[in-house]
Design a protein around this nucleic acid. Sequence first.
DNA 1: GCCGTTTTCGGCCCGACTGTTTTCAGTCG
Length: 582
Amino acid sequence: MAERAPTNAEIVRALEAVVALMEIRGDEHYRVLAYTRAAESVANHSGSVAALDDPKSLPHVGGTTSQFIADLVEGRMPPVLDELMEEIPRSLVEVTRLPGVGPRTAGRLWKELGVTSVEEVAALDPEEIGKLKGFGKKSAEKIVAAAERYDATERRLLLDDATAIGEALLAFVRSHPSTDRADLAGSLRRGKETIGDLDLVAASTDPAALSDAFAGADFVREVVAHGPSKVSIKVDGPRRSPDDLVDVDLRIVRPEAYGTLLHHFTGSQAHNIVLRERAVKRGINISEYGLASEATGGEPEPVATEEELYERLGLSYIPPELREDAGELRAAENGTLPDLIETGDIRGDLHVHTNYSDGKGTIRSMAEAAIELGYEYLVFCDHSQSLRVANGLSPERLARKLREVREADEEYDEIRLFCGSEVDILKDGSLDYEDALLAELDFVVASVHTSFGVGEKAMTERIRRAMNNEHVRTIAHPTGRVLNRRDPYEVDVQALIAEARATNTALELNAYPDRLDLKAEHARAAVEAGVKLTIDTDAHDESALGFMRFGVAQARRAWVEKGNVINTLPLREFEAYLKAGK
DNA sequence: GCCGTTTTCGGCCCGACTGTTTTCAGTCG
């Protein structure tokens, strides 16, 4: 037995390692695909896979892959992975990440030139590669150049940056005279927590003209590919430096085929594949150009909207955020898709900061920004006393702030203002204010900001203890991760969900683009367990109140409905919830 | 390797673009 059961993410990493190495070895495509799908299935599972009685209950996990998972759970190295790592240098996997280099090329560079790493590719003379059959001067130079500028630190775009860049590009596409419709597609449209590259789709009466205009626009830093219906370019990333470029794809079709195009490039790829397989069984072939069947003589018949596409397949409309091959097809067949929460359902923000601690806004400026958003209530939760780096409030300053919130509340008819605290959960699980003080506040958010490295057992106990405090209504950013900067601390999220349910404590889905914590799989597990969520921006200035849309997008990916979220309650009901206690 | 409203065997989504090719493999999404 292993010391600790592997997390879903660890199982996924092991399966993906098999995929990468098998591809290099040149294993049969469908064998590799099976491991790919098993990895996706584990990643999409909301509960702990290690805790399942039989992993075969997961879709795309059969006898072999379930044994693979069982080996990991019991602390054994799965033989297939052992064998692959014995045979193939692990560092070759990185070579396949070079743009334009896939597993076939990496495998040949290794077998025919003895190259095992990106560094060794960069050190190659392009002429050596050019001597290999099927490689010319151009591709040889491209491969070496890609290796030379390869940056191993994977950096993905946060949602706010991706949205800003994407919307600017979209405005350009929409402004072209031949454009009929255009949208952002891909993972940004699905609301994924981070974005690798941007996908745009357009319906145009003159695709070639739009393609040329896009490839020639002044924001283009590099043209990667340029055809009559597809353009791939690089544009400046958020850091606007030469080594911070973002890949962008634009696909263009005639207006009548827009529905299937938008659908195709929204993905996910896994969703598209299962949807298309299902269609093939019914004699229909789906492509971005439409639906083809015997009845259409094998030619694609265009479909103008996504709604019509799903309808023609006998399915209810599946929102983009659910398109992950995570059970949405079955739900669409049965008419049991969730009625997903929308940004407009949010009635207030329960976790915002002011200049009393480390925020930039004042009580009144934040209140006025919240009024602009149409909120019915706003809860100020500044940091507590021990968090000195964030100018945490002493009991005296908290008392002063409480008075000011009460005064400001009198001044605004449009909104109710509440005074809360984001109170630190100290190392031993006690809270950073006395209970008597917490009792005076309207709402208490508790969270961990220090001593991240205490280990899973201690961290889980620490947060569970905080949940058992009668004043603590929600746990903010429950896993502490900061995207691109800091991994989550070790904590047993399943145990937190169980304790949240037992103590009637909510869990926060923090909408800040670099947190988005809980992540979607955990948020889904929480609502499945009957735990309520709060979706809060943790705003430190007025504009950050607008991050709510990113939190809602993540909640939608977690199959969350309005009724699962505390701050969708109308003011009267929210007040009743406050009054009722835990 | 997985899967079954034609199947326990024989299938497995579909197409654009590039480079090096005279018909296609590899990569990408």
